[in-house]
Design a protein around this nucleic acid. Structure first.
Lengths: 337, 337
DNA sequence: CGGAGAAGTTACAGCGCTGGTAAAACAGAG
DNA sequence: CTCTGTTTTACCAGCGCTGTAACTTCTCCG
């Protein structure tokens, strides 16, 4: 089973390499008889085109990189699935890169120490600033995802986080909640995601004439249910009084449910809770989670659209695409009335 | 910012291409002065080695494919994370391929219509039989994951599923449960995973002198909490009586918790429930899940070890590696006594 | 101070494929 | 039966890099 090359097929079929190449790619201007003859040779020899050879010759690899913090974060897993599925439909395959939100890893993604491997990059930054992205960026086409900063020259797809956070906060207010907390942002330096969501939360409070009280903000040590449960538990034990809770993401909300349950606090009666992302699990928590759902299909599609245009040679300024989101109401914060 | 090639650097530094290549790869036998001079040229020109070129020349790409059904299934997400992390440590990057358990997609993975793109494949089959794998397989190094069938010629890493299922079943029996059900296998044609877990479940029942009753097996329409909840709910409503429940995986267990909660059945008092996989969420369900935890670090490492040997040229028969697992006891099925 | 051996550097031939273009084959018209 | 116009096929030059082997320059010892 030695490696079979294009040339071997050509010789075997008694035609030129280019003709075989044309057959492989289903190019026009190949007579039916010729096509048949070549195909027979291909099958007979078990020929498999070599992606590297083609890649070198065409300058394309058909690979896209998807860079995100951690695939085990359910939202990212769902994002990866969406992007992968849609990418495959468009003839690309997906390279998975995890950054663990580390600045160093993110820099490596953006500055692409190796050229030619991927045709484009879809990147959800967590640590890098807009300035850093602009500074380290090479000329590999890239599309940014999420609420992070985007340099003017880079395409960007996101949902309107401030609006969503405002919506969710007002939803709690409509339930008559007046001491509405926020859970799950980072202690210390915050990701842009946390910042804009807190911004929307505050705006919601203001619109409802509720006091904005910094002591209602409960930071967490990590993006995980465990860290959120621990953080909220500690805050409650220290005397925090709330009757509503906006969580930065569903994982934080799940942690909150746990911390509240352990302390005999009823959800939603004593405290109404909302999540963010509408991960699959949000329908299976106890109680089920009211949450913000981004349209991830539209997100993946938009990102790929922009990226393909860049790959195709578009060189204009960065485009910013806002993708729809909606509030999914479940048990943890039911509708008013 | 035109593309800079190795040759450009060589010319700029006044040396041969090979010397530049040696510097890039930190090869020995390059004098410090030379190294410095070349490095300066590299920096000055902003040279990035081209992966395709190197790939063609060396026959290696540094890419591995990880093929699994669906990354949004939490166990697979955790697997992907592990494999990716360990692969990166070894100098590889990971291509993510989702098969959705479809026979066609799985065949495409195994028969690799394109050569040269990945150095090896790690594949968790769901639909393909051992015979099919052997039949479609090309000579790309491959390692199989999971309890599925493996042809004699192919390497394989798994945990001892029968033993684990027996353990978990006996754990429930030790709690005094006598009507122990099984939830979450496929309706109709079952995956090998389901088969071996049911096998271990039955063995456990037999060892405990409990009756093996087919009506205690509750099949589900999909690997998801929703499908499992629906299936168990229907069974309960139809009169199924159980006091213990072995679930095929944590998702099924989460669905079971939901179905039971909705019917006012207390877990673990009325029904003790166990999951499988120890996904992160298993610590945050209500109640928390007793479950089987595979050593995924060992799994990823073993798979990569085998694969690297194959990539290195090993051509012996398929090796089978069993990786450890353990029972993690939490609230849904606490320890006896 | 000459020569053997080590250290450092270079030239060159591909790796497998495709794009552009030249050449050949063929068909139709006069 | 020749000539033009079109379709089909073949040739060639790389794409960017590395492995091999050969060459040049040092270094050290007798």
């Amino acid at each position: 089973m030695a490696r079979v090359r294009l040339e071997d097929v050509a010789r075997h079929a008694g035609v030129s390499m280019k003709t075989v190449s044309n057959v492989v790619h289903d190019f026009p201007h190949v007579s039916a008889r010729m096509r048949e003859r070549v195909q027979a040779a291909i099958n007979e020899l078990g020929y498999r085109p070599n992606a590297m050879g083609r890649g070198l010759a065409t300058g394309r690899t058909g690979l896209l990189a998807l860079a995100l913090a951690d695939v085990t974060i359910p939202y990212f897993a769902e994002l990866a699935r969406m992007v992968s599925t849609h990418a495959v439909k468009r003839g690309y395959r997906l390279l998975l890169e995890q950054t663990d939100s580390s600045l160093e890893e993110e820099r490596a993604i953006v500055s692409a120490s190796e050229a030619g491997l991927v045709d484009g990059v879809i990147f959800q930054p967590a640590a890098m600033s807009s300035f850093e992205i602009a500074k380290h960026r090479t000329d590999v086409p890239i599309v940014l995802l999420g609420e992070g900063p985007a340099p003017l020259s880079v395409d960007h797809v996101m949902i309107d986080n401030v609006d969503a956070a405002t919506t969710v906060t007002r939803h709690l207010a409509a339930l008559g909640r007046t001491r509405i907390g926020f859970l799950g942002h980072e202690r210390g330096r915050q990701t842009q995601t946390s910042k804009v969501r807190i911004m929307g939360y505050q705006l919601g409070l203001e619109l409802e004439d509720l006091p904005v009280d910094p002591s209602l903000l409960v930071a967490s040590n990590a993006i995980s249910a465990a860290a959120a449960a621990q953080a909220l538990g500690a805050a409650l034990d220290a005397g925090l009084k709330i009757d509503g809770l906006v969580c930065r993401d569903d994982l934080a909300a799940i942690g909150a449910l746990r911390a509240l349950a352990e302390r005999g606090v009823s959800v939603p009666d004593d405290v109404a809770v909302t999540g963010w992302d509408d991960i699959t699990m949000a329908s299976f928590t106890h109680p089920t989670l009211t949450t913000i759902a981004a349209d991830t299909t539209a997100l993946a599609d938009a990102a790929l659209d922009l990226l393909e245009e860049r790959i195709g040679g578009f060189e204009g300024l960065g485009r910013h695409v806002i993708v729809p989101h909606r509030l999914v109401v479940r048990e943890s914060a039911p509708s008013a009335g």
